[in-house]
Computed example of a mutant assay.
Amino acid sequence: MQARGRYVSGPSALLGTAALAAAISFSSGAIAQSVSAQAAAAAAAPAQASAPAQAPAASSGTLPAVNVNAEKPQQKPAQRQVKRQGPNREPIKIPVNASGCKSVRAPGKPYFVEFRSRTAVSYGHTFVVHGRLGEGNRYASYQIAGLHPKGDDPNVYMQGMMVPVESETGPSWGDEDEQYLTARFCVTLTEAEYRKALAYIKTLQATKKTWHATTYNCNAFAADIARHIGLDSPNPNMYLPQAFITRMADLNKGGKPNNPFAANFSGFQQAPATQPQRRAPVQRTAQPRQTQQPTQQ
């Protein structure tokens, strides 16, 4: 085979023509695919722009998204601690309050001593609540003092009807629950007056070691406190607790004894009666008695 000029004849020429045709066909297909892809992308762009943006998926290292519009979980109200009393630890239904001191509040007298009586299995109990008044019907602070047989054994109480038994001078079962309250009488004091009363109450609590129903009982314990702060007290052995407190209130209207000459009233102290000084008697010296001499005749 011989080549002439720029043309090639024979099988080689046929092969070249086929390759060129294939190349042209491939290029046309690629161009068509590229144009189709660009058109699809252009058509999808407006739809993506109008769609709201979505938050990227949280990865394992980030916190989960919080829905601020969701309802907050309801918190359980704090439970009030219920005081209990007695050997069976029964709950206190009506805690102590200062409603009995409302009518006797006075400026400069933020402290109080309240004489109380309550029911009991027997004939009742007398005790004293003292401390500082708070707002409304509340006590800012309070303490309880009262004489009673030690413990909750009724046998000890029965023994105390005949002979003195060991006693306690703090709160007893029922003192802090006003559902058992039968009578009350409140007196307000200045700070100086209360300090003296508190010191005396602490002394009684430290020294009174026995309880005896017919000699020194809960009424007698409260009567000593009443006399110390200047009140008139009824005979503790003539009244049951409720009548004893009621009688004490009657004897001390407005927080002062009705009888200003009561021996135990500290607000009206009489000076001891002074007798006029008598002049010392004049010492007279005995004069010798002159005897009349008989005249001589």
Rank of each mutant, 00 (worst) to 15 (best):
N97C: 03
A98M: 05
A98F: 07
S99C: 13
S99Y: 01
G100I: 00
C101F: 08
C101W: 04
C101H: 12
C101Y: 07
K102M: 15
S103P: 14
S103M: 05
S103F: 10
V104Y: 14
R105Y: 15
A106M: 14
A106N: 15
A106D: 15
A106C: 15
G108I: 10
G108S: 14
K109H: 08
K109N: 13
K109F: 02
K109E: 15
K109G: 06
P110V: 12
P110G: 09
P110C: 04
P110Q: 12
P110T: 02
Y111H: 13
Y111R: 10
Y111G: 09
F112T: 11
F112N: 13
F112I: 07
V113R: 10
V113D: 09
V113N: 05
E114S: 14
E114L: 13
F115C: 07
R116Y: 15
S117W: 03
S117R: 00
R118A: 14
R118W: 05
A120D: 06
A120I: 00
A120E: 10
A120M: 11
A120H: 04
A120V: 01
A120G: 13
V121I: 12
V121L: 14
S122N: 14
S122P: 08
S122M: 08
Y123N: 06
Y123G: 01
G124K: 01
H125D: 10
H125K: 00
H125C: 05
H125G: 05
H125S: 04
H125Q: 08
H125R: 05
T126C: 09
T126D: 06
T126E: 01
F127P: 08
F127V: 04
V128W: 01
H130M: 06
G131T: 13
G131D: 09
R132V: 06
L133A: 11
L133N: 06
L133S: 07
L133K: 06
G134S: 06
G134W: 09
E135T: 12
E135D: 12
E135A: 11
E135I: 01
G136P: 01
G136A: 01
G136V: 07
G136T: 05
N137K: 07
N137D: 15
N137F: 09
R138F: 13
R138W: 09
Y139M: 08
Y139A: 04
Y139L: 03
A140D: 15
S141E: 14
S141T: 14
S141V: 12
S141N: 14
S141L: 12
S141R: 13
Y142C: 03
Y142L: 14
Q143L: 04
Q143R: 08
Q143V: 02
Q143P: 00
I144E: 03
I144M: 02
I144S: 04
A145Y: 00
A145C: 03
A145V: 02
A145N: 02
G146W: 00
L147E: 01
L147G: 11
L147P: 08
L147Y: 06
L147A: 09
H148W: 08
H148C: 02
H148F: 03
P149C: 05
P149R: 05
K150M: 09
K150Y: 08
K150V: 04
G151K: 00
G151N: 07
G151Y: 11
G151P: 10
D152K: 03
